[in-house]
Computed example of a mutant assay.
Amino acid sequence: MDLFIIIETRLLTLIEGVLTANIFDWGSHACVDLYHKRTIIEIYRMSCKKMQRPWRVDDFDAFKERMGFGDKKPCFRHKRALLFVDNSGAGVVLGMLPLTRGLLRRGTEH
């Protein structure tokens, strides 16, 4: 597999992780039931499988271009990034920390 495709797939996986991890913030009865019946990781994996593009608000292609994984080259490296998180432990651990790590790997300052 082409390294470019692997990196692009990783970027999509990071964004899907952020979106999927937010199910814990919904507070719906269904999410609470899932939480009591399964582990957080099982809920996360199940949600990832169900989350298909296009999403309701789907700007991933524009984001991908901005990150340098589209037709435009060279790859843009953000000097700094400001990430907002809320009080959801699962959202931070399963979504924002992996995204932060991915940005750091690309050279974003810490």
Rank of each mutant, 00 (worst) to 15 (best):
R77W: 13
M67H: 14
C75D: 10
A81N: 12
K37L: 15
S47P: 00
Q52P: 00
K50M: 00
R77F: 14
M46Y: 03
I43M: 13
M51I: 00
F60R: 00
K37A: 15
H78T: 01
M51N: 05
K73T: 10
Q52L: 01
V57W: 07
P74W: 11
V57G: 04
R80Y: 15
P74K: 01
C75Q: 14
R77K: 15
W55F: 15
D61G: 06
H36I: 06
R56C: 03
M51A: 08
C48A: 14
V57P: 00
K72V: 08
K49R: 12
R38D: 04
R66V: 03
K50G: 02
R38N: 12
Y44Q: 13
E65F: 09
K49G: 02
R53G: 05
R56V: 07
A81S: 15
F63C: 05
I41F: 13
T39E: 04
F76I: 06
E42P: 00
C75S: 10
R56H: 07
K50T: 00
I41Q: 15
D71G: 13
H78D: 06
M51K: 14
R38G: 01
I43D: 01
R77A: 14
E42T: 09
R80Q: 13
I40M: 05
R77Y: 14
K50W: 01
C48Y: 12
F76R: 14
D58N: 07
M46D: 10
V57F: 13
T39A: 02
Q52R: 03
E42Q: 15
A62K: 08
H36F: 14
C75V: 11
R77H: 13
I43K: 08
K64T: 01
K79W: 10
H36K: 00
G68H: 09
L82Q: 09
I43C: 06
G68R: 02
M46K: 06
R56M: 11
K64R: 15
D58E: 05
Y44M: 03
R56T: 04
L83M: 13
G70K: 00
D61P: 01
F69Y: 15
K73G: 06
F60C: 03
V57Q: 14
D71V: 11
D58T: 01
K72L: 08
D59L: 12
K79I: 00
C48L: 14
K50L: 00
D71Y: 13
I40L: 01
